[in-house]
């Protein structure tokens, strides 16, 4: 939708740029020209488009926010230049590295921080990215619709080794998640 809207505006503008080469010199008065070009196309047109777009973005963004609910699973992700470490509030003794386990079909809040430089936690198919910043904890809401594995990436430049800073997210069905919590899954 963003793309088609953008294409439409692009075609409109390039068309307006091309036309004066094909037609004869304009004869409109300065006041009329200002009204058409500056006030109409320059002010009113973008304001309308942008207001709609902004409202759309805010509504979507609001829907992605982590609101408290009883079914929410809480996990923690700690970035480092050696890889990601994950811990689970439902199973205090479990720590995994490079693989994050979550239940499918339930909202999961990931508390993100780092032990060295800035990283960014990103699982493209589950949610947008959120930064891991020293001394701060950021919470990201993710949810996998179906069991399976999802590719995750660090998305903030962190020096040499940045390209290999990846992880996977394994989403379990109900039974698999219970098995993970009691330590039956590695």
């Amino acid at each position: 939708m963003l793309l088609s809207g953008a294409t439409l505006i692009f075609v409109l503008v390039t068309g307006l740029v091309a036309l004066p080469f094909l037609r004869r010199k304009g004869t409109a008065s300065e006041r009329h020209e200002i009204r058409t070009w500056v006030i109409g196309l320059g002010l009113a047109f973008p304001m309308t488009v942008l207001a709609a777009l902004l409202a759309y973005g805010l509504v979507i963004g609001e829907r992605l926010l982590p609101y408290p609910g009883d079914a929410v699973v809480e996990v923690a992700a700690t970035g480092s230049r050696d890889g990601w470490i994950f811990t689970y509030s439902d199973a205090a003794d479990r720590t995994t590295s490079a693989v994050l386990h979550i239940p499918a079909g339930r909202p999961v809040d990931v508390a993100i921080t780092t032990e060295d430089v800035i990283h960014s936690f990103w699982v493209p198919r589950l949610a947008g990215k959120l930064d891991a910043i020293p001394g701060h904890v950021n919470v990201l809401r993710i949810e996998a619709d179906a069991p399976g594995t999802y590719q995750g990436l660090s998305a903030e430049f962190s020096g040499p080794g940045y390209a290999n800073l990846t992880f996977t997210v394994t989403a379990h069905d109900g039974a698999g998640w219970r098995a993970f919590l009691v330590g039956k899954t590695e």
């Binding site: 058409t36 500056v38 320059g42």
Partner: peptide, 12 residues
């Protein structure tokens, strides 16, 4: 946008 369309208007 004001500048862009003022320029296009100048071309017209």
């Amino acid at each position: 946008a004001v500048q862009i369309f003022a320029w296009i208007g100048t071309m017209w």
